[in-house]
């Protein structure tokens, strides 16, 4: 714990910079530091308990809680999408089940809590970011493109066809962050897993091997969640009679924050 306290010196630097330049982020930084401390400490205890118990049921419970929290968090960035919660829960759950299922079926990791908890957490975290970005974009697109969408409906197109260009752009923006960072991995930045393993004294080849596996798994997870979220959520903009719902165009205050970077493993 002494090292953690020492690292707070860098937080002091951040607070100092914010105050010096009037960025107004001091209280946000303090909140972030306190929350990260409390949340990570708590999850540390939870994971210890789950590892001790060594039952898969607890893993499922933990990951389910993460899915629900992740969906609520993602919804705050998808305010312009009506009833975004359900698509988000399904997107996160499906991407977790599909990727973890595939990982186990291919024998990439053994089916034990020690692997499932961290990999599952990372999958859900990245799926959350991707679907949040995708739905944020979808909301903006459907708003700015409403005239075009309705003009396409007027030709007798279904809502699916009319929304397709918006859905395509939303899917793309949800996935592209991870694709781009995967491209530059090792050149411009070291992903977290690799850094963690190196710091923990692992052999660099092992660190690289595991990092590659995780990157590939995450690419799949991100694509599945962005696809699921957008394919379900676009429907909420339409009535069953293929009419564009009057969403009043109320733009959420957070709509500009949707492009936040991915929490890559």
């Amino acid at each position: 714990m002494g090292e953690v306290a020492a690292a707070l010196a860098l937080v002091a630097v951040a607070v100092g910079i914010s105050r010096w330049r009037g960025a107004g982020l001091e209280s946000d930084i303090v909140i972030a530091v306190v929350r990260s401390f409390v949340q990570l400490t708590a999850i540390g205890f939870v994971i210890t308990a789950i590892f001790d118990q060594d039952t898969l049921l607890l893993v499922v419970v933990l990951l389910s809680v993460m899915v629900v929290f992740g969906a609520f968090t993602a919804r705050t960035r998808a305010r312009e999408v009506p009833d975004a919660l359900r698509p988000l829960i399904i997107a996160l759950a499906l991407s977790a089940v599909a990727t973890l299922g595939l990982v186990l079926a291919l024998g990439i990791f053994p089916a034990t809590p020690r692997y499932l908890v961290p990999v599952g957490g990372m999958v859900i975290g990245n799926a959350m970011t991707a679907s949040a970005v995708a739905l944020n974009r979808l909301g903006d697109e459907m708003h700015s493109d409403a005239a075009r969408v309705e003009a396409t409906l007027a030709l007798g197109a279904t809502s699916r066809v009319a929304a397709a260009p918006s859905v395509r752009r939303a899917l793309r923006s949800g996935t592209i962050t991870l694709v781009d960072s995967t491209k530059t991995t090792g050149l411009i930045f070291f992903p977290g897993t690799m850094v963690g393993m190196l710091l923990a004294g692992a052999d660099p080849t092992d660190a690289v091997r595991l990092q590659l596996i995780l990157l590939y798994v995450l690419l799949g997870a991100v694509a599945i969640s962005a696809l699921t979220a957008t394919s379900l959520a676009y429907r909420n903009f339409f009535t069953p009679a293929h009419q564009l719902r009057d969403t009043g165009g109320a733009s959420g205050p957070d709509s500009a924050n949707g492009q936040a970077g991915g929490a890559i493993g």
Partner: peptide
């Protein structure tokens, strides 16, 4: 059926809104 109706009754909106 709204889709069939709109193929028979075509609406040209007030502002042009073509696809890319």
């Amino acid at each position: 059926d709204p889709l069939r109706l709109r193929r028979e009754v075509a609406l040209v909106p007030q502002l042009p809104a073509l696809l890319d």
